[in-house]
Amino acid sequence: MMNFSWKDYRTVCLLLAVLAMGVLFARPAEEQERPVYNLTFIVDITRSMNAADSTQDGRAVSRLEFVKRNLRDLLVKLPCQSRVGLGLFTERRSTLLFEPIEVCGSYAEIDAAIAQIDWRMAWAADSNIAQGLMNTLEMLQHRDGSVVFITDGHEAPPPNPRYRPDFSALKGKVKGIIVGVGGLTAVPIPKFDSRGEPAGYYTADDVPHRSSFGESNLDPSQIEGYNARNAPFGSAKVTGSEHLSALHETYLEELALAAGLRYARLSDAEALAEAVQRPEFALTKKVAGDVRRQPALFALLMTVIVYWPFGLRRLKNALLSIRRKVVGYAARTL
């Protein structure tokens, strides 16, 4: 019945191809370790995030719009099996909208939730970033994963350095990165009326230019009109430029250092993707990797060899047959 000629390379190749397919079915997948990320985005939605000093597609957009655009672009750059959660920061604390969920399967939901972030969601109007960061880290300290705290560093009122929170208890407990957004030149902050309609910009008279809580951080003898009980901050009228907002990069870098976080400035989704996919944030996850390609490729090559019409041997065969014909013709004619 069957009678294989092992001298024929084609038989050997076909047999190898069949064997390769056997390997393919015997071991279709292999456990591979792949880095995935568990990120919780905390987005600053305070008023200064409305300052329109970011450009996108050639037009000025608010910092918040810019952040939203970049976060949405980031979603598609994260490897599947990564998880993304979302929270908001305002006043001196943050809230979590949803716990981290798988980024590929729930892409549409995460994307829609990010698109809906609005400064009007703020439940209070102060902005104390150090306190907010502290609160965020406390909230997230018992989770694995990293926090991505996105802010412009503009605080209202500007905090008194005397009362800066102490991060030493939390340092190193939470991994993460502070992402700074906004330009370095100060721009005015848009103002909205009670119905949410634009109403010009904040002026110097609209905002407090210093915090008058507690005691001053300055030496009392330096303060004009100082009175320990009635005027701990002195009597001089404070003027300043707190109605204008710029990215407070050095301040955020200081905070990051104190809290054991990283710092990066937001420029585009590409850079953001790189910043949040640091090896130290990666969680290795065992995923079943498809390894069927290698044996399949081998089987394909073997089959190609069988049917390859331009090969040496074929050439030789062709030459041989021509010679035979020529010899035969010559023998007959001679």
Partner: peptide, 21 residues
Amino acid sequence: APLFVMPMTENKEAVKAAIAA
């Protein structure tokens, strides 16, 4: 203020993540 959390979805995992938060 009102917070938009999760759009109308059939994705139960996402809804549960929002409730868990």
